[in-house]
């Protein structure tokens, strides 16, 4: 007999009626948790009965929307409702045991809604990468494809300052390579002209063999 776990979305309005029904049917409250998203805070209420574990999710509770407390039905939930208020800034209304934002007494206000710099950087990068990938997919669909696409997608994921530096460095490198290859051929010719003809012929043969070999490889 394994746990049957389910996730189900419900609306904020039906929260209390759902909780009332579950209470009548003899479920016990397991927990409540919050997830901070771009569209507000998602709340997940979990209940259990025998081998069933049901999670009811209320999506996108924004600042200023008040959520009714279900402590009058399940008092055990009071630490989590207070936690939601302290750490996520969710306005829970009508709590039986209300610590009024002093449950954890944290130094930082609503700390769970704040992204650490590392996480923010990573999130921005992911968003840019996703955007670049979407752009590439679009381009590919239209039939045109550029060889620098991969690189461009990577550059898009970087922070702009770094990307500009990488671009500049790559351009400089390309310029230098072009100049140096032209120059080195000239140099060799000049050197060969100064050599004795027999030796020069040998060197030329060796150089050609090397080039051919490189070409094969």
């Amino acid at each position: 007999m394994a746990h049957e776990r389910s996730f189900q979305d419900i609306s904020l309005d039906s929260l209390v009626s759902t909780a009332e029904r579950l209470k009548r049917e003899g479920w016990r409250c397991v927990q409540m948790l919050c997830v901070n998203t771009d569209n507000g805070v998602d709340l997940t209420y979990s209940f259990s009965k025998l081998n069933e574990l049901a999670n009811y999710q209320v999506r996108g509770v924004t600042q200023g929307t008040s959520v009714p407390s279900i402590q009058n039905l399940f008092l055990g939930i009071f630490p989590f409702e207070n936690e939601a208020k302290d750490l996520f800034g969710v306005d829970i209304e009508g709590m039986v045991l209300d610590f009024a934002g002093k449950f954890y007494a944290v130094a930082e206000r609503e700390p769970m809604t704040i992204l650490t710099p590392e996480a923010k950087e990573r999130k921005d990068k992911e968003a840019k990468k996703a955007a670049a990938a979407a752009a590439k997919a679009k381009q590919a669909a239209e039939g045109g494809s550029a060889p620098a696409d991969d690189l461009e997608a990577k550059l898009a994921g970087m922070d702009p300052e770094k990307a500009a530096k990488v671009r500049a460095a790559m351009e400089a490198k390309a310029r230098k390579e072009a100049a140096s290859s032209a120059q080195s051929e000239d140099d060799i010719e000049a050197k060969l002209a100064n050599m004795d003809p027999e030796k020069a012929a040998k060197v030329r043969a060796a150089l050609e063999a090397k080039k051919a070999k490189e070409g094969n490889a």
């Binding site: 397991v30 948790l33 009071f78």
Partner: peptide, 9 residues
């Protein structure tokens, strides 16, 4: 969600 937190009530 740890056991003690739900047992507080």
């Amino acid at each position: 969600r740890t056991p003690t937190s739900i047992n507080l009530a």
